[in-house]
């Protein structure tokens, strides 16, 4: 087991290496002028285009560019982001908490809703409730994140005037910047509590509701489907039948034995779910004016800022690879039948 973990951990740098090669390689498909897009912002600077290309080595070949980047990265310098106009590491430090806050606030509802509805569907197999939930899940699965986000903005925010968009009201942002407000975590809800500022906590929470809801709707459908089928699997197994035959109350059987075992396949869903969530966050941050990592990366992609993109891809690669590793480990822990050599 330990062997396996070590081997898998060693694979992570390999994954990052491959990803960075892919990105730098793809950038080679462009001409130096195109690669200058992130460096030149206005028409007036076209006069100095050649000078800018030279300055940032945009006309160099693959190996030179990769070396320039890799050498800095090995020194711990991820480069300067043309999108946020500051070192990449600074931006990640500032923006990661925002995205984490969003992801965390959506995570628990996603799991709860998915598992709960999946269980209901399985226990009412082929009944009306099951069929209805099935349709709901398929609808949730068919809703593109951006459409969901637009509907929420229009109906709930625009129509009812509830909740909010952005991270905090502007007047509060000024207040916090000029007063004494310590940013412990970078997440406004937590910082609000830690500073004893209930108003900040509420305002921040208020602005998390809609984006988190959009995420929950889009992501939990998948969990629900998996939960339903694994629960059905479990309910069909001998030990459940035996338990039933023994006359134990049905509910107790379901929750105590089957339910726990049925959760195991849901854990494997964590990887794909995280992927879907990250994809969703990119779009949601754009629509809800929520300046996190996703918004930053989307802009970087649109403006061809290679340094930012590389950093983002590395970060996501790292998160995904570690998440998958954790899932595998968790799998062994909850299900002793599984062994990895």
């Amino acid at each position: 087991m330990l062997n396996y973990i070590i081997r898998r951990s060693l694979q992570i740098p390999m994954v990052l290496f491959v990803l960075s090669l892919i990105i730098v390689g793809l950038m080679q498909l462009l001409t130096p002028q195109q690669r200058a897009a992130a460096f030149v912002k206005s028409d007036k600077q076209i006069e100095h285009l050649d000078q800018i290309i030279k300055k940032y080595h945009l006309d160099e070949g693959f190996l030179v560019q990769y070396e320039l980047w890799a050498r800095e990265v090995l020194r711990g310098n991820l480069g300067f982001s043309r999108i946020s106009k500051e070192p990449v590491t600074t931006t990640i430090r500032k923006r990661l908490p925002a995205s984490m806050e969003l992801a965390l606030s959506a995570f628990i509802p996603i799991v709860l809703v998915g598992v709960w509805l999946g269980t209901i569907a399985a226990t009412h197999r082929d009944g009306i409730l099951d069929q209805a939930l099935r349709v709901v899940a398929i609808i949730g699965w068919s809703l593109p994140t951006f459409v969901m986000a637009i509907w929420l903005v229009a109906w709930v925010y625009g129509g009812l005037g509830w909740f909010g968009i952005g991270r905090l009201p502007n007047s509060m942002l000024i207040d916090l910047a000029t007063g004494h407000f310590h940013r412990y975590t970078g997440m406004y809800t937590l910082d609000g509590l830690l500073n004893g500022r209930w108003d900040v906590f509420f305002q921040a929470l208020k602005r998390l509701v809609l984006p988190a809801t959009a995420l929950v709707i889009v992501v939990s459908a998948g969990i629900m489907r998996v939960m339903r089928s694994s629960m059905l699997d479990e309910l069909g197994k001998d030990y459940v039948r035996t338990a039933r035959a023994k006359g134990l109350m049905q509910k107790a059987v379901i929750y105590k034995h089957a339910w726990r075992n049925a959760l195991i396949p849901v854990i494997t869903m964590a990887g794909p779910m995280l992927g879907r969530m990250i994809g969703g966050i990119v779009v949601i941050e754009l629509i809800f004016n929520f300046p996190g990592l996703g918004e930053w990366a989307a802009k970087a992609a649109l403006q061809l800022d290679m340094t930012t993109l590389l950093a983002f891809v590395m970060l996501i690669g790292l998160i995904m690879a570690s998440a998958n590793l954790l899932v595998d480990i968790a799998y062994v822990i909850v299900d002793p039948r599984i062994r990895y050599e």
């Binding site: 005037g161 509830w162 909740f163 909010g164 009201p169 502007n170 007047s171 509060m172 000024i174 509420f202 929470l205 208020k206 509701v209």
Partner: peptide
């Protein structure tokens, strides 16, 4: 209700430009 509540207007000595 606190979550739904009304927005804050900017104070008198403050200028906010989007």
């Amino acid at each position: 209700l606190a979550l739904i509540g009304a927005a804050l207007a900017t104070p008198k000595d403050t200028y906010v430009f989007l």
